[in-house]
Amino acid sequence: MIDWYRRKTWTNKDEEEFFAKLKRARVEGRAQYLKIQAIELVETKEKHLLDIAEALLNKVLTEYPESKIETSSVLHTLGDIYRLRANYEKALEYYGQSLDFEKVFPKVITTSYLDFSELVVKTASANLYNFTEALLEDKLAEQLFPVAKYKMCSILSIINHEKGNLVKAKYYHDLAEENANAETSGLRYHKHLGVVVKRDSWLDKMMGRNISFL
Rank of each mutant, 00 (worst) to 15 (best):
E54W: 00
E28I: 12
Y113H: 14
L22T: 06
R26I: 02
G29K: 13
A53P: 05
V74H: 06
L34P: 04
L144H: 03
W202S: 04
A20E: 14
S112E: 06
K170T: 08
A53Q: 05
E70L: 09
E43C: 04
K149N: 07
M206L: 14
A91F: 06
I69A: 08
L166N: 03
K21M: 14
N12M: 08
K151E: 09
A25P: 01
A20I: 10
E93Y: 15
S201W: 07
T111P: 01
H190M: 13
L75S: 09
Y88D: 12
T11I: 10
T111Y: 15
V74I: 12
A25M: 12
E162V: 00
S157Y: 06
I211T: 10
F116Y: 15
G79M: 06
L92I: 05
A124D: 14
R6W: 01
S125E: 13
V42F: 00
I159N: 06
E46I: 11
V195H: 01
A176S: 15
A38K: 08
V167R: 11
F116C: 03
E16M: 11
L34G: 06
L56T: 10
I81Y: 02
E137D: 07
L144Q: 09
H76T: 11
F145V: 04
L84E: 07
L99V: 06
R85P: 01
G164Q: 08
G208I: 01
A55V: 02
I81E: 07
K170I: 12
L187M: 14
M1D: 13
L49M: 03
F116K: 04
F18N: 09
S212F: 02
F116Q: 02
I81C: 06
F19M: 08
D100K: 13
G29R: 11
T132I: 05
A124I: 10
E142Q: 12
Y150Q: 02
E118V: 00
K149S: 03
H76E: 13
N87C: 01
L34K: 09
A182I: 10
Y94P: 00
G164F: 02
K47Q: 13
V147M: 08
I211N: 05
Y150R: 00
N165G: 00
H161N: 12
H161T: 02
A91K: 07
Y5G: 01
S185T: 14
T111S: 15
T44E: 02
F145C: 01
A182C: 08
P146K: 04
Y33V: 09
T110R: 07
D200V: 01
A91M: 03
N181M: 13
R26W: 10
L34S: 08
L187G: 05
M152F: 00
Y171K: 12
A141W: 10
A91W: 10
D174F: 00
I39S: 09
L57C: 03
D138K: 15
N165T: 02
E183P: 03
L75F: 13
D3M: 13
K8E: 14
S201Q: 13
E142H: 13
K90S: 03
G186L: 08
Q32Y: 15
M206Y: 08
K45D: 07
E40D: 10
I109Q: 13
Y171L: 15
L156T: 00
C153P: 02
T77Y: 12
D200T: 01
I52S: 09
E54N: 11
T111K: 14
E28A: 07
L114G: 05
Y171H: 11
M207I: 10
S212Q: 09
G208L: 07
E183L: 15
F116T: 05
